[in-house]
């Protein structure tokens, strides 16, 4: 059976191997050191990740992803977690991969020490946000006032404009809230990565040395009054930060 090395995370030198199992069915966790950067790995059958292997089974992937997450969770504040499915055919290509990214990995590891990743997302309650904008946006008020007293043809056209203006006002409001969020976090954060969900929700992934600042509570209340809620998720191992760091660390 041909073995490959499954990589969980990058670590700084000197961190002991966590005393825990890795992926289900994998060999014991081990370290591969390349200069100042270390990879936490375990030997796995190469066939798992071949075309049509177990990695094509959603149930298996879901279970193993949670094991990966458990390993990264134990290394919280120390490691740079990798995405699920980083496999190396042997130690040599892993060493090469680490060596090619030595500088950016070392920098990212320094930034991540003692930090956790938090995600803040802005969720709009569309009817409430539209009601708030109708009461506070002068252009919307002007258009809707004009439409109310216009004849049918003009009203139709004004309502089309109003619809577009409403969309634009919503987007402006959410953009401004996202910017405000980034500004509020800038002084506390080691790194800020703007986020956007599949549905287009705006937010930010932030690498913080402590809990999110209490000032966010006030911002959440103020935004809520406009029909936008702020949701917080964390603490996470710095997955988004690691992804961003590696995306700019060409190999």
């Amino acid at each position: 059976m041909s073995l490959a090395l499954y990589a969980y995370a990058a670590l700084p030198a000197g961190v002991p191997v966590p005393d825990m199992p890795g992926l289900e069915g994998a060999g014991p966790l081990a370290l591969v050191t390349e200069g100042a950067v270390v990879a936490l790995v375990s030997p796995v059958p190469a066939a798992w990740f071949a075309e049509g292997g177990l990695a094509s089974d959603p149930e298996w992937v879901s279970r193993q992803a949670l094991r990966h997450h458990a390993v990264c969770g134990v290394l919280a504040g120390t490691a740079l977690p990798l995405a699920f499915g980083a496999v190396f055919s042997s130690e040599a290509p892993l060493r090469l991969w680490l060596a090619e990214r030595a500088g950016p990995l070392a920098t990212a590891l320094t930034h991540a020490q003692g930090c956790a990743e938090w995600t803040l997302l802005l969720r709009e309650d569309t009817p409430r946000l539209e009601a708030w904008l109708a009461a506070h946006d002068t252009e919307l008020a002007r258009l809707s006032g004009a439409a109310a007293v216009a004849g049918p043809g003009t009203r139709f056209l004004l309502e089309r404009r109003l619809e577009r203006a409403r969309e634009e006002a919503r987007a402006r409001h959410l953009d401004a809230a996202a910017t405000r969020l980034q500004v509020a976090l800038a002084d506390h954060a080691r790194a800020l990565i703007p986020a956007r969900t599949r549905a287009g929700m705006l937010g930010v992934n932030v690498l913080l040395p402590g809990a999110p600042p209490p000032s966010l509570e006030n911002m959440a209340s103020e935004l809520d009054a406009t029909g936008v809620s702020l949701t917080l998720s964390g603490p996470w191992p710095p997955y988004a930060f690691a992804r961003e760091a590696l995306a700019h660390a060409h190999g």
Binding site: A4, F49, A55, V61, A65, H68, H69, A83, F84, G85, A86, V87, F88, S89, Y239, R243
Partner: peptide
Amino acid sequence: LLDTGVVL
């Protein structure tokens, strides 16, 4: 965790 797929 599930970013792009298996990276070999």
